[in-house]
Design a protein around this nucleic acid. Structure first.
Length: 386
DNA sequence: AAGAGATCCAACCGCTCCCTA
DNA sequence: GTAGGGAGCGGTTGGATCTCT
């Protein structure tokens, strides 16, 4: 092993950094159709200039429809602390017990404030055991109760939970018992997880062996908007011609080239009042994610009320519609999104391009459900900056 | 209002695990 | 038994955003 492991891909040949909406959509479209059995080959097949690992990460941490976005609730944070004590820095295992949360997200939350929150009371204790499971949380939890419950998350809607010590002691006792159970074996953890996640493999449609696959229809059917806060990270993708993209990705065994869609069109559409009006009056279904839903659901007619509703939702989501100017359109891009270089600003969005064909396969059905399952108003705190 | 420092989080890196031939 | 390759995991980083002065 003198040479060490070969890199997974040629770093000079792949794009790095923030993902663009177009890349996201390509990835979503491809995975919706073909799943992700081979991450290494996926970017090539999907027409993405990305490393397979990057695609996997993007999908798991951000694009997966069952990813719960928004701030962690107090209950979730308690669970993280409890599970971290039981499992240590096993973020993926912790994530598996917090439906909708990713290991990366949990890791970030832990490192950014949960760790800090617990730090003061831990000062006198061993600081080296931070990543190691403890036999019981009782003592640590009791001593940390004050700082723990007085914590108020910045920039988040207050999750006001009564913070008296009696309640905490009850919880600590309960958690202590649970943790002892957890420590018995990881198998048990897995079993408990199975109960929590309601058998993700029990779906009628499955494109891949991964339990997180988005075409898990059971997840979608059981979607509860109020509770789950599932959120599309790309509600603004309405201008992308998913239909043609899906046609392109319908060739998984060849190297395909999907032309980059200019993001500009979408912003131009919003910038131009006339365009927006035509957009709204175009007798096209405008649901939560208008163009995409149109494409997928194949609805041929729409009510103006729905069009207006979407317009309002979009305004809520992105701020002022119609006042965005050419000079500052980039500022309306969602946080951390990459702007595609060399945009073709001459192209205009054409609804006629949308493939309105009704889906026939189960895969397409899954696609419908994916998109239609995202709630309109997610609590993604990224919206703060929009 | 502006600059500095703090915070957050998406993405990357490199390692380990696991499967297959 | 073992070498190679892919997937997954945990640690870290860098840039964007927020808060404070």
């Amino acid at each position: 092993m003198g040479k060490g492991r070969a890199p997974c891909c040629d770093k000079t040949q792949v794009k790095r950094g923030p993902w663009s909406p177009a890349e996201d959509l390509k990835l979503i479209a491809f995975i919706q159709k073909y799943g992700h059995e081979n991450w290494r080959a996926l970017p090539k097949q999907a027409g993405l200039l990305r490393c397979g690992k990057s695609c996997r990460l993007r999908w798991i941490n951000y694009l997966r429809p069952d990813v719960k976005r928004g701030n962690f609730t107090l209950e979730e944070e308690e669970n993280i602390i409890r599970l971290h004590k039981a499992l240590g820095n096993k973020w993926s295992k912790i994530a598996s017990r917090l439906p909708g949360r990713t290991d990366n997200e949990i890791k970030n939350v832990w490192n950014t404030h949960l760790k800090k929150r617990l730090a003061p009371k831990k000062g006198s204790e061993s600081s080296a055991d931070e990543s190691k499971p403890e036999s019981s949380i009782t003592s640590a939890s009791s001593s940390s109760s004050e700082s723990f419950f007085s914590y108020e998350r910045p920039n988040s809607p207050k999750t006001t939970t009564p913070c008296n010590n009696d309640q905490f002691n009850d919880q600590a006792e309960k958690l202590s018992i649970e943790d002892k159970m957890e420590q018995d074996s990881e198998k048990q953890v897995s079993n408990e997880l199975a109960n929590i996640t309601e058998d993700p493999k029990g779906s009628s449609v499955s494109l891949s062996s991964d339990e997180s696959n988005i075409v898990n229809t059971s997840q979608i059917v059981e979607h509860k908007p109020e509770e789950e806060q599932l959120a599309s990270p790309l509600p603004y993708l309405g201008h992308y011609d998913v239909g043609s993209m899906l046609e392109e990705v319908d060739k998984p065994n060849q190297l395909i080239e999907i032309p980059w869609e200019p993001d500009y069109d979408f912003w131009k559409l919003l910038d131009d009042d006339n365009s927006l009006e035509s957009f709204q009056s175009n007798e096209v279904q405008l649901g939560e994610f208008p163009a995409i839903q149109n494409i997928i659901l194949g609805e041929e007619s729409v009510h103006d009320a729905e069009a207006k509703k979407w317009s309002q939702d979009f305004e809520n989501e992105f701020g002022v519609v119609g006042e965005m100017k050419e000079s500052n359109k980039d500022h309306f891009l969602p946080k951390n999104y990459a702007v595609e270089p060399e945009m073709d600003h001459t192209q205009a969005f054409d609804f006629d391009d949308i493939d309105m064909a009704r889906p026939e396969s189960e895969l397409d059905l899954g696609y419908i459900q994916l998109w239609s399952s995202w709630p309109q108003n997610n609590n993604n705190n990224n919206n703060n900056s929009l």
